[in-house]
Design a protein around this nucleic acid. Structure first.
Length: 468
RNA sequence: GGUCCCAUCGUCUAGCGGUAAGGACACCGGCCUUUCACGUCGGUAACAGGGGUUCAAAUCCCCUUGGGAUCACCA
């Protein structure tokens, strides 16, 4: 068996959406697993709708997910001469013909057919035409075999059979001389040596026509694997109204690429009961046969859970780096204040997204803590100043200002004062963070350092006093 | 409408003739606990319906129903 060659072939008419990303991922994984090649091809034959911004957005999405390609990106718009040649060949061999029907009359016929409940199939007006009509614009149609069946063994869905009479003579070249998708995709996949085509199952109905083209052109037919669609919560095809569909939008919402990859791969593929997969594990365990046949609903809750998992178990140094842009958006300069990786460590297990991580980190870098009104109303009691004062004095004497010693100090403090942790913990938390929700105060104090910790408590002390 | 595809908890799924139908997310309780989380223990919850085949069917076949895709000089 020779080298397996796969490809991802998006059309640059928008960003990389989650469905496309999953298709790309499956291709990439199979290429890695089988030690084959993964090729990226930009399908921009529709020059009017294709944009460079879209190309850039798609490449950015691929890179973010870690899906690197071995060849390309190839651009179909740069391959027009190749397509022209194949059209000429088909024409010369009588496997295609010139069609002089105008788009308007075709449209009219289609509407009539639909109105009468018939299949809107090309009627073959120009199929029998002899010779050419000089000077008249024409499109080129493929002379589709009308007898027998066209079938293929889909790697995911099994054998799929079509009656050839269902397939009409499709246009392969527009009257302006540009080629049509179903034609170029065959030529490209064939000339690029693609052995396995993994794509969305919205292409199932295109496959028999493409197989006919492979055969007419004398190319070997590749294997096909059609992956099911991704649906929204209402089981309709995933769209913007269900929330974000752009992969990069998920990055901006604070998702990690490994969470996205893990989520996408498990949507429609499984390996026993396993939920968490590293890229390396996926490369080892992925098989196209284990991809499910039915469409799946995109579930943000599960993505969130995975993201939380990867944040919780992630390397603090790396997370700190990824966090910087999110902090900048909050006007926080992580260079001025405690070590960001240390801050991240205290927040990891309670942040589901990088956004939450950033929100949680802000108070470390804002010396002028803003006290939550509800919190102060509940915990800033008259006896608090003396407790704060005593604590300040005790903290002053602590030599090793780290988690364990601080915790021990608080236990002693409670005993000495004859109070419960609940009487001193919350007020200290408010003094340090401003509110009633934060990481463990011992950790916070360690990260803040003795000086800043005492400064914040002293500040809160003044606040309570002033409050009367 | 024609053609094609699909069908296990709310969701993602395991299952590939013999299971008390398993796991995960979400949800609901208990425990842990200075908060929020984490962790942990437990709970609710599914084979779309009907016919076959078989000693035996979630698993195989057929029909129905329900979803989806596609029928362009878009990709």
């Amino acid at each position: 068996m020779s080298e397996i060659r796969l490809r991802f072939a998006p059309s640059p008419t928008g960003y990389l959406h989650v469905g496309g990303a999953r298709t790309a991922l499956f291709n990439w994984l199979l290429a890695k697993k089988e030690h084959g090649r993964f090729i990226l091809r930009i399908e921009d034959t529709d020059v009017a709708r294709s944009t460079q911004e879209s190309v850039d957005a798609i490449l950015e999405g691929m890179r973010w997910l870690g899906l690197d390609w071995d060849e390309g990106p190839y651009y179909q718009s740069e391959r027009f001469p190749i397509y022209k040649e194949s059209v000429a060949k088909l024409l010369a061999e009588g496997k295609a013909y010139r069609c002089y029907c105008s788009a308007e009359e075709l449209e009219k016929k289609r509407e009539e057919a639909l109105a009468e409940g018939r299949k809107p199939k090309y009627d073959g007006t120009c199929r029998k035409l002899q010779g050419e009509l000089p000077g008249k614009p024409y499109a080129v149609r493929f002379k589709s075999p009308q007898e027998g069946v066209t079938a293929f063994d889909d790697l995911i869905k099994g054998t799929i059979t079509f009656n050839n009479e269902e397939l009409d003579d499709l246009i392969i070249q527009r009257s302006d001389g540009t080629p049509i998708y179903n034609f170029v995709v065959v030529i490209d996949d064939a000339t690029m040596g693609i052995t396995t085509v993994i794509r969305g199952d919205d292409h199932v109905n295109n496959t028999p026509r493409q197989i006919q083209l492979y055969e007419a052109l004398g190319y070997p037919v590749p294997r096909f694997a059609h992956v099911p669609m991704i649906l929204g919560a209402d089981k309709a095809r995933l769209s913007k109204r269900h929330g974000a569909t752009s992969v990069m939008a998920y990055r901006d919402m604070g998702f990690l690429p490994e969470a996205m990859v893990n989520y996408l791969v498990r949507l429609g593929w499984s390996h026993g009961d396993q939920e968490i997969f590293s890229m390396a594990e996926l490369v080892e365990k992925f098989t196209i046969e284990a991809v499910g046949r039915s469409a799946g609903v995109f579930n943000t809750d599960k993505l969130l859970w995975l993201n939380h998992h990867y944040i919780m178990n992630g390397d603090p140094q790396r997370l700190a780096e990824l966090l910087v842009p999110f902090l900048k958006e909050r006007d926080v300069d992580p260079a001025k204040g405690p070590s960001l990786p240390a801050v991240v460590k205290t927040l990891q297990e309670r942040a589901k997204t990088m956004l939450e991580l950033a929100d949680g980190a802000v108070f470390y870098y804002r010396p002028e803590v803003v006290y939550d009104a509800e919190a102060t109303a509940k915990f800033f009691k008259p006896e608090l100043p003396s407790l704060y004062q005593a604590l300040l004095a005790k903290l002053e004497m602590l030599a090793d200002f780290s988690h364990q010693p601080i915790e021990t100090l608080f236990k002693e403090f409670c005993t000495e004062q004859g109070i419960k942790m609940g009487q001193i913990g919350p007020p200290v938390r408010i003094a340090l963070c401003g509110g009633t929700v934060s990481p463990s105060i011992y950790e916070v104090m360690e990260v803040l350092g003795k000086e800043e910790t005492r400064r914040r408590i002293a500040r809160a002390l003044e606040f309570v006093k002033a409050q009367g």
